[in-house]
Write a protein that binds this DNA or RNA. Structure first.
Lengths: 322, 322
DNA sequence: AAGATGTCTGAGCATATGCCCATAAGTCGA
DNA sequence: TCGACTTATGGGCATATGCTCAGACATCTT
């Protein structure tokens, strides 16, 4: 009757494991106490507790609204091989997704800013980053360097409304390196001239060494922020879309596989691509239904290795099969 | 005073605690890793994990029925003709038996709450039910009606500390019907007046139709909860004991045969007896050495047809010869 | 403004935990 | 029955954890 006895021992072993797990996780006893209670050695108690957990007898649940967000974070990390993911809880329908994102994004950035070691922090632009900047607390970060990836001169010649760099640098009191050029430079000669400027080379070199980069992610539908804000023309938009553009990061468009497009508009962009030093973090900050396609592409192509997004967006990013 | 009501205020500290608790209990990370992940010190991570636990964010459940407990359940079912019995594994000496019971009781109640068909659920009071309420997961049960069998006004005029109904209704988001009267009403005239209130009649009618009733079981020794909590006087206690009282369910005392006492204190009780509709379930939730006698009497008298108790108590209930 | 009060933080330490390894106890085939 | 192999057991140790305590910080009071 080896079979029956095997079953018996298996059952009683599982029973003992369950009992030990109950005492440990529910009762809060120490393994010594469990050993005494069950009349076994401490090591055996430890093994039973471990077995209870590994066999899934113990089910742990987190009773909090961010529990779902944490699960989404884990899913996104695994699926896209990301290093840092934060998912902001949904704030109910009708609320601006960017607004919900800002405090969470600010928290992420604050963590970098609080590092005592000097960091090079590169910044893109856009509404999400602007909102993040508003949520940053006042602090003093003389040790870091903030640099901008995008030009700070809007098409009309004024400083851009969404100049994130200045706002952040002002709030956190850090040395900062703006990019003194237009977002889009139509004349190739002038563009080359800009790029030859010494201070721009400094910024470019810093950007290449960035420890962490924060960028927004733009969509390329008819309501593309680049177009709405007048940085590119309808014709540019259609051209890029025809070339397969589904999103842009720091004005650089990419296709559905997350590959940067090298022709057309890309030849007129004033600014740098997100990247930073090898092993540096590139964190995308974006949320909303229109961001799902651009985000998925950017993540697939490895343009980002970090993400701050909203609950619904995260769900959408994980919804479709691999 | 930044005293926060634990229910609605969900501050960032609790968010962080939830995050840490998730990483620790679900993710299985060490506190050092959590500290790194969250960018805080190890001590802070430890405090966050501890806070997640103490605030009841973490719920642990055992997904395995231990054979010994199953045997006790079967024994109790047969001996007392019960319909539903759950026996929680022992938690070792020195631990509060009520606390050990709570997760199991919550599981039982959760099963009713998950019914899609509308149910009328009646609730008593007491420490065991209160502890059960703490273990309930957040859910939405608009279809059910929760009613209280006991008054919610303590002798000192405040709402009772153990107001189970509100806590449960708040956690599971169900319509609820409290009993707006004192637990004990000394003046007979006033008592009649209370009972004549229309809303009380509504509650009484609902209680009579209850599909399931959850009640604690009180003992009537010198440490009777009714007495300890100041609902009845020492004189009341001794009077009832002299009349044969060995236990009480929802403030209604009964003798060793499980027959309700109709005189004395019973004339001053504000509240309803556990019963519900014909065929409805009346589930007692109680554990501990002092509960053995009251439980045996209640089961013998058929005051309950369901039971959630602890292993030792179950053993004691089955120990003596029929 | 100064002091008092209460809360938060990080260092240090005693204890609990997890894991490796040598040894004991089975288990199976010849 | 023996020997080889697998599985379980407890000792010991490195590490993780929980807790205490003194100092920092902020808030409130006089």
């Amino acid at each position: 009757m080896t079979k029956k006895s095997a079953l018996d021992t298996e059952d009683s072993a599982t029973d003992a494991a369950a009992r030990a797990g109950w005492l440990y996780y529910v009762g809060g006893l120490t393994q010594d106490q469990i050993a005494a209670e069950l009349g076994v050695s401490r090591q055996r108690a430890q093994r039973l507790v471990s077995k209870a957990m590994s066999e899934g007898l113990i089910h742990v649940r987190l009773e909090h609204r961010i529990a779902a967000c944490l699960a989404l974070e884990a899913g996104l990390k695994r699926r896209y091989g990301l290093r840092l993911v934060r998912v902001a809880p949904a704030q109910g329908p009708g609320t601006d997704p960017t607004h919900a994102l800002a405090p969470v994004a600010a928290e992420v950035m604050e963590r970098f800013l609080r590092q005592p070691d000097p960091l090079i922090i590169a910044l893109g632009t856009g509404r999400a980053l602007r909102a993040m900047a508003e949520e940053l607390p006042k602090m003093t970060c003389e040790q870091h360097k903030l640099i901008s990836l995008v030009g700070n001169i809007a098409p009309d010649g004024t400083a851009s409304n969404y100049d994130v760099l200045m706002r952040v640098a002002d709030t956190v009191r850090a040395p900062h390196y703006p990019m003194p050029l237009p977002v889009i430079i139509d004349d190739e000669e002038i563009r080359r001239m800009f790029y030859a400027l010494p201070q721009l080379k400094i910024v470019a070199r810093l950007a290449d060494q960035a420890d962490v980069t924060f960028v927004g992610v733009g969509h390329m539908t008819e309501s593309a922020p680049l177009y709405i804000d007048g940085f590119i023309s309808a014709r540019d938009l259609h051209e890029q879309r025809a070339m397969g553009a589904v999103g842009e990061v720091a004005t650089w468009c990419y296709d559905s596989e997350g590959r940067y497009l090298e022709d057309g508009l890309a030849r007129r962009v004033g600014g740098l691509r997100a990247g930073g030093k090898p092993g540096g973090e590139v964190i995308g900050i974006a949320s909303g239904p229109e961001k799902v396609i651009p985000l998925r592409a950017a993540l697939k192509g490895g343009l980002l290795n970090g993400l701050v997004t909203g609950e619904e967006t995260a769900e959408a990013l994980l919804a479709d099969p691999e």
